[in-house]
Design a binder for these strands. Structure first.
Lengths: 349, 349
DNA sequence: TTGTACGCGTTATCAC
DNA sequence: GTGATAACGCGTACAA
């Protein structure tokens, strides 16, 4: 009982040549019925699994993967993604994997389009993108399929069957996670503000999903009595973003909880002591300013979306598909990590 | 500017043969000074990275990895490890990786020893074990080194430099995570019981580390005023374990919080309503009974030690070391996952 | 001391 | 239709 049969083994057992076996296995035709039967008889008896390493060696191709994501200058949320890219580059450069990073301004559709155009023109084997702009991203997906470029997304979703691989978090559910945390901290009743803080509302669908999940939790728990208000805060023309936040806090009555659906919880935490010092804040993402206020106990919890892991898993999935024919997973949902002062370091590594 | 130089390329550039280049690279000697210089000159100019795939193909070995872990019959905590094993087996069987699972009774040192002996005798390429019994595990490590078997541990640590790879959680810190959660739920003061519930105290060092971290948090926060009692609960001779628990609860005054350092929080949650209904329980591990009480809001939080991920990462690390010469990491600390009713499903997958 | 030739398993090409 | 053969890159045995 051998374990790993090779084409050569099969050829001997069937009394034909390697070439014929290959033609049978790959259904290339040009095989006589007699030979076909011989080979199939052997294939039925044993389990043939082609050696992926040999295949890969023969292939001997360089693969180019391009990744299209926002500039971390504009938002440090994206910083960890860069680390993941370097890490994957180091791990797989020996295997002929080239990764090309392309940045766009998260506030500019044009910038996204321009970068995407350039990427598609360069004809990489795959593009991994953050589909911040729905329509434009759909268009990119379409053109990738036409150009035979594998297309994957992370962080956001576009519901498009053309996407070969997508990874992210269940945002609705993460809203529920936040709601449950407030429930545990505040008890059976209270007032909570949902704040969508985003300079230009690129993350509109993101934020809405979280809001929906959040409200869903309280709606389904009839024993709870919470007053929930929703506020959209974006940059006003003549004043700084920070002042906009401050003006907002001035304008409202003290509240028990503040749920910030973006990574901008620090903007609120910064002013909380002055205006509504007893408010519990829950926000998203381990950007350094958020961690600072977490450690000062001004932010109670953060929810971690692990952008680094998203990039790492996206890239390794694509790479193993290219190198070893591992089937591409279609959709991956990452866990919703709850972070407090004590467990954040391990998530940063 | 080529990217991936092969030995053949270098040979041509240096005006020597492949064999000579190989001898230089692997320092096998038998090279004339002149040739040595030629080759080194080329090697200085370019960056040579041997193709790991070709190396691996040539190698063409089957690797046997044995994994020694407790029987999940005795404790369902180990169940997810089995899943990880199957998953890795499926992913890498094509690569000539064989994984052999060997179980021992977590309550029996003898059973551990016996299983370990058999494994070592079978001379696998690597052994991954749960070092539940310190001295015996040290002995296994020693004999593995002698027999040239790579030795790795997960879930528990033994401080032994012979271990080639170890993975687990920072238990001290996870105690602090629990403490912080109690702090947030209970406020500035209260009474908390630390319960070490373990049928035979195999996990003694485990539990003590968590206790130390837990107390450390409250000791360092001078503004907090918590009364903390420690109780060891193990099976008494004549009655069931469950009755032991019940007797304990009967014997104490109502308390604000209960910190269970093992996966046995469900045993407490089961009786909480009768004896101390307002106690907040925090425990460890996503075993199904714990999740049941989590969903009933009888357990506030669970801390997830992700045994499945521990096994998965251990195995893939070893495999990539064997197949592709990836350097073995030495020590990996997994994040300390905080689990509530809303985010547990994603951690189970 | 050096170069050559072969094998690992798969695939593609090329005579027959 | 078919089988033989070369090639991918590395390691190594062996002949020169």
């Amino acid at each position: 009982m051998k374990e790993n049969y090779t084409i050569k083994d099969i050829a001997e057992m069937a009394g034909v040549s390697k070439g014929t076996v290959d033609r049978v296995i790959h259904k290339r035709g040009k095989v006589s019925p007699a030979a076909l039967e011989q080979v199939n008889k052997v294939l039925d008896k044993i389990e043939y699994k082609p050696n992926p390493i040999a295949k890969s060696l023969k292939n001997n191709k360089n693969y180019n993967i391009s990744i299209l994501l926002p500039d971390a200058e504009a938002d440090p949320y994206w910083e960890p993604c860069y680390e993941a890219i370097s890490q994957v580059e180091n791990e797989f450069s020996h295997f002929g994997i080239k990764i090309h990073k392309s940045l766009f301004k998260p506030s500019s559709t044009k910038s996204f389009k321009k970068a995407a155009d350039a990427l598609i023109d360069s004809k990489p084997d795959a593009i991994l993108m953050v589909p911040l702009f729905y329509i434009e991203a759909e268009n990119v997906a379409k053109r990738c399929v036409e150009a035979d470029i594998k297309i994957a997304t992370f962080n956001n979703y576009i519901k498009d069957h053309k996407i070969n691989f997508e990874i992210g978090q269940d945002l609705f559910q993460s809203g529920r996670v936040a709601a449950k945390l407030f429930n545990m901290l505040l008890g059976k009743s209270g007032s909570i503000a949902i704040l969508h803080i985003d300079e230009a509302f690129q993350n509109a669908s993101h934020m809405q999903e979280k809001e929906r999940g959040f409200k869903d939790f309280f709606n389904l728990n009839k024993k709870l009595d919470f007053k929930i208000d929703v506020h959209n805060l974006k940059k006003e023309s003549k004043i700084t973003f920070d002042q906009t936040i401050e003006n907002f806090l001035k304008s409202i009555d003290p509240i028990d909880g503040i749920f910030v659906t973006t990574s901008k919880a620090y903007l609120i935490a910064n002013h909380i002591a002055t205006y509504t010092p007893d408010s519990v804040i829950i926000g998203y993402d381990l950007v350094s300013e958020n961690i600072k206020y977490l450690e000062e106990n001004k932010i109670a919890f953060l929810i971690h979306q692990d952008p680094k892991k998203q990039v790492y898993l996206s890239l390794t999935n694509l790479i193993e598909f290219f190198l070893f024919d591992k089937p591409l997973q279609e959709s991956v949902l990452l866990p919703i990590d709850i972070i407090n002062t004590e467990n954040f370091p391990q998530y940063l590594n």
